[in-house]
Design a protein around this nucleic acid. Sequence first.
RNA 1: GAUUCGGUAGCUCAGUCGGUAGAGCAGCGGCCUUUUAAGCCGUGGGUCGAGGGUUCAAAUCCCUCCCGAGUCACCA
Length: 555
Amino acid sequence: MVPTTTVSGITDQELARRENLRRVRELGVEPFPYRFEFTHRAAELRLLGEGKDSASLKSMGEFAIAGRVVAYRSSGKTAFLNLQDDHERIQVYLRRDDEVNDSGTTSGQGEANWPVIKILDLGDFIGVRGRLMRTKTGELTLQAVGVQGFEFLGKSLRPLPFPKVEEVKDEAGKVVERKTFQSSLFSDIEARYRQRYADLAVNPEVANIFRLRTTIVQEVRQYLVEHSFLEVETPTLQAVYGGASARPFVTHHNALDIPLYLRISNELYLKRLIAGGFDRVFEFVKDFRNEGIDRTHNPEFTQVEFYQAYADYNDMMVHFQAIWQRAAKAVLKLKARRSALARGLSMEGLQTEFAAIEAGQVPLVYQGRELSTFFGDWEKLPVKTALKRKGVDIDALSDQELQALIQTNHWELDGTYSRGRAMMLAFEKLVEPELWEPAFVMDHPAESTPLCKVHRNDPTLVERFEPAIAGMEVGNSYSELNDPIVQRRLLEAQVERGRGGEEETHPLDEDFLRAMEYGMPPMGGVGIGIDRMTMILTDQSSIRDVLLFPLQKPE
RNA sequence: GAUUCGGUAGCUCAGUCGGUAGAGCAGCGGCCUUUUAAGCCGUGGGUCGAGGGUUCAAAUCCCUCCCGAGUCACCA
């Protein structure tokens, strides 16, 4: 925790780097130049060089790459460096003296640059121009050629937390084995979140999670676009918040001198747009909810919501399942491609694997446990049916019997008793803990939400579903209420409850009611939590591992 | 909020029964023109999370607090 500090307040290692910076300048080299013209990235060079020997590599001409020095092995008058660009690595070879090249002339590469090369620090950025070669051990390497072969691109003044090498010793204390161990990746969890830049720079597999996250978002967007949904943008700052039950963050607009709220949902705005005649809309949004932080909650989180006119919640289930399966397949393919080389998989082998993924034959695994029905049709699980299976037949129980059930189990019902609340409590206690395979938990009690249509076959229920995967709620969907009179009654009742001291109800949104009064078509709506979706598809156990910058207490 | 575990060098960690604070990597000074765990020689670096207590003596035992992670609860 407490660093080795000097009088000036910086560590000895930082001091050494500042000294190296001074020396670079002294050698007439600008340590922070403007640009570098690279021709390829490390990954591209590796692809180009695959299966070629040194002779044919050298005949391919010159290449230039730029990146960060992540390993440095100097042996007197040569140096091998691992250069990292875009989280891919390639070895580069620098020499002090001239080397006679193919055409018999000298390359004159290192002499001028050598003093600078010698004082490179891990983390420095450099550019290298030269020819590809293979070392004795067969590693593809870019060898710098000529005085133009090396350029300094940016000095690092602070040591990056590169992983260490573990030593395995025998009884006599002799080192018998050393290995880089994954668990020693920059592992101070707090520091990893606070200094995500350092985490990303030294842990390429962390960076990969965020690449996968982007892929997931792109797949979802692509699906919606292909199904004629229009991407729109609605306000983050709202004078009246609503669309979910949550406490908002409050802010203030100076010029208007009014309070404003960061949205807890964009639902009411997207419905306004349906009223405005856009039949299918969607939006990726950050929602903000003033709540605690844990493994599955962050105060700001990303959702995609979409609304479709003339559709109901059954139609939305089809979309929901298709979107998740599509994104999951994309993730599995990327993972397969990434590990193909390490697994010695040929191009044909990879194609076969892709076909299997596309056919849903490669299982999705979360935290070591298979989601075996994921690529099939997901179970539809009405709350009442699930409870019946557990021996609780809600419709056959009187209020007294329901209350007795709660008491004998020592469950705690918050708020006042109602049949619907009791039903959801029993569901949480009896059914939820056992949910693992994807399931559309559906047909919730009517009082669970004011924005949903009453169930067409049961007036005590609404047409709502909340899909659960690996025990996590990953979305929410309704046959959306479009009767303005009923809507007003439900929202007003909620405002009344709010005055009664119940938290997390919304103020009355008159403008939303006005939009509904002009007329709204029937519609289905869905919200998908992108963070939890990314958790499940990338096999991460904490929401903070799929957020680049999770909320942290200030240092 | 309850509870468990943790905080020792830049990083990852060890530290026995309370007895001069350690290792690897990183750093610094050398040697080494195909290394990749580079190697060899030498070397600097510590408010042991903070404060208090017990003791001749505390990283170690006790108390309080701070910070973090996990689990549960709350929340969704």
